[in-house]
Each structure stands twice: as C-alpha cells, then as structure tokens.
C-alpha cells in the first residue's frame, strides 16, 4: 500500500534520513519504533507532504506522494494524527472533529463518520461543546484520533499517541487503534512504547541512525536480542 524507497531528507546541512526503505502492507498495523530524535516524525511528515525529500520516492497506491502538497496527500487518504495532538485549541471538540472532515471526500460522509467516532470514543460525545484546549491530555489524544478518523483515512499514521499519557489511557488508545484496524484501515503507528506495541502490531520496523535497521513480525522482534537490549532494557 505504501512503499518508501531510498529516501533521503535533510534539514539544511543536517541529513536526517538517508537510504530509508519501508513497506506498509494493506490492512495491517505497522509499527515504527525508534528512540527520541532518530527521525520518526521527519519520516512521516515527509510522507504527508510537509517536507520534500532530497532523494528517493514514496509511492502510495501507485501515486508518488513526494510531489504532492500536504493537503493533496490527505485527499488521497493518507491521514496523520500528529505528535503532541496539535488540536485547534480554541475550537470546540465538535469543531475539531468537523475540521477532520474537511477533505471533500470526507465532507459528504461527515455525519456517518461522526457517529462512527462517537461509537469508538464515547467520551467525546459528552465533551462535544468543550473547548479543546481545556481537555485533559488523554481526552485531547482521543479528539486527535477522532479528528483523523473523520478524514476517512485509508492509511492512518499515528505519531506517538501514547506520549505523556497515563497507562490506563494508553491502553484505551491502543485498543481503539486495534478496533480501527478491524474496520479495514491500515495503521502506521510511530511509538517509543516498544514492549506494548510489539505485542499487538502485525509488523514492526526499527529506525536507527536515519534508516531502518531491523524489521519483522511484532512478536518475533520481541525476542530479538538487539531489541531486547536496546529498547526493552533486558
């Protein structure tokens, strides 16, 4: 579904990613793991059209994304739930969700999507008219996730959705991600929460020094000596 090949991305003189290859299969939860500052966010922002790569290609269902501006990528069905939620803080929960349904394709289905999101995240239904900036971290992440789903993604990219949340809330979020996958949406999950994610993802990749160094099935990687030592502290 998504094929990233020999990708190179630079910030001025700094090479953030180089020679990166990544394959995301349809209908799976694919995890992208890596410590702070290895370039996970850089990678998905490049996929989403916010940065232009200096080399390489990103092909999504036959379309080259590296030439498309961010808003076009969304219209094609690749939707990102950004790191740190990035809600519209002065808008209500409902308005944030409605913003998710901005692409023309999603707009027609907005009512139906809203029911779907409320079914998945019932907490949001009680909070529709609350200003997003006043919600707790966990609720904000739910809004961010709901907003992403409102866009009717075919590939949903989540950037560290568990960041800064209490364990119980993290469970809810991951459980929701699993339900999202059940509806046929492919998920690319960027995480540092390695142990938990490896236990439920279909495939996982490890990003180190600007490229993918390791890949495999989730449970398989859980037994990998390098993963155990570097990410699980064993």
């Amino acid at each position: 579904m998504l094929e990233v090949s020999s990708l190179e991305v630079c910030y001025g003189d700094l090479v953030a990613l180089s020679g990166l290859n990544l394959h995301v299969e349809q209908g799976r939860i694919v995890a992208l793991l890596g410590s702070n500052g290895v370039g996970k966010t850089t990678l998905i922002n490049t996929i989403c059209g916010l940065f232009k790569p200096t080399k390489g290609s990103i092909v999504y269902q036959g379309t080259h994304l590296e030439r498309e501006p961010a808003h076009r990528v969304v219209e094609l069905g690749v939707v990102q739930v950004p790191e740190g939620r990035k809600l519209f803080p002065q808008m209500t929960v409902l308005e944030n969700l409605q913003m998710g349904a901005y692409p023309p394709r999603a707009r027609e289905l907005a009512e139906e999507s809203l029911d779907f999101v409320f079914g998945l995240l019932p907490r949001l239904k009680e909070r529709t008219n609350q200003i997003a900036g006043t919600l707790s971290g966990g609720e904000q992440q739910m809004v961010a996730l709901g907003r992403g789903l409102m866009a009717r993604p075919r590939l949903l990219i989540l950037d560290e959705p568990s960041l800064g949340l209490a364990p119980l809330v993290v469970q809810t979020i991951f459980e929701t991600v699993r339900q999202v996958k059940e509806t046929g949406i492919t998920v690319l999950l960027v995480e540092q929460n390695v142990r938990q994610v490896l236990s439920f993802c279909d495939r996982a990749f490890v990003l180190e020094n600007g490229c993918i160094t390791l890949g495999g099935q989730g449970l398989e990687l859980l037994d990998n000596p390098h993963v155990r030592e570097a990410y699980l502290g064993m």
Binding site: L50, P69, E75, M99
Partner: peptide, 24 residues
C-alpha cells in the same frame, strides 16, 4: 462553514490545518 472553520484553524495552527487537508 467549512471554509470559515478552515480559516480559524489555519490561524490557530497552520501546519495542523494543512494535515487536515486545508490548502493553506
């Protein structure tokens, strides 16, 4: 309206608005 909300969204967070499919 969608456009009105997009204008407010862009004012609040331009990059997040682009990620929602807004042509900034």
């Amino acid at each position: 309206t969608y456009m009105g909300r997009a204008i407010r969204a862009t004012a609040q967070d331009r990059r997040a608005a682009a990620l929602m499919g807004v042509n900034v």
